[in-house]
Amino acid sequence: MAESGVTYTLNQPRFAFRHWDDGCVAHDEADGSLYELTPAAGLVLTELQAMGGQADGMALASKVLQAQPEHDDIQLIQELMVQLGELGIVRLEPA
């Protein structure tokens, strides 16, 4: 799979986040900005943090779904991670 060569790493300690059922807010220590994120993004970030702040797409999707992910699931995680990467909240690095 295309994403299998990418590792996602939480950009900590620069970013902190809090996740509730209704949404998620991330805080950028660099300039004090707050980002309102979807509940799904909050869930994925929470699972990534629980995995030590670093995981690849397959492992992260398995953790989020609590099941063997299908290709589409991994694709969605990948797209989400790209968006979070553009905000600087996660870093996308070659495995």
């Binding site: 809090r18 509730w20 209704d22 949404g23 998620c24 807010v25 309102e36 994120l37 909050g42």
Partner: peptide, 11 residues
Amino acid sequence: RGKAEALLELQ
């Protein structure tokens, strides 16, 4: 009110 929205309003 949603917690995330409330946090943004508080800030």
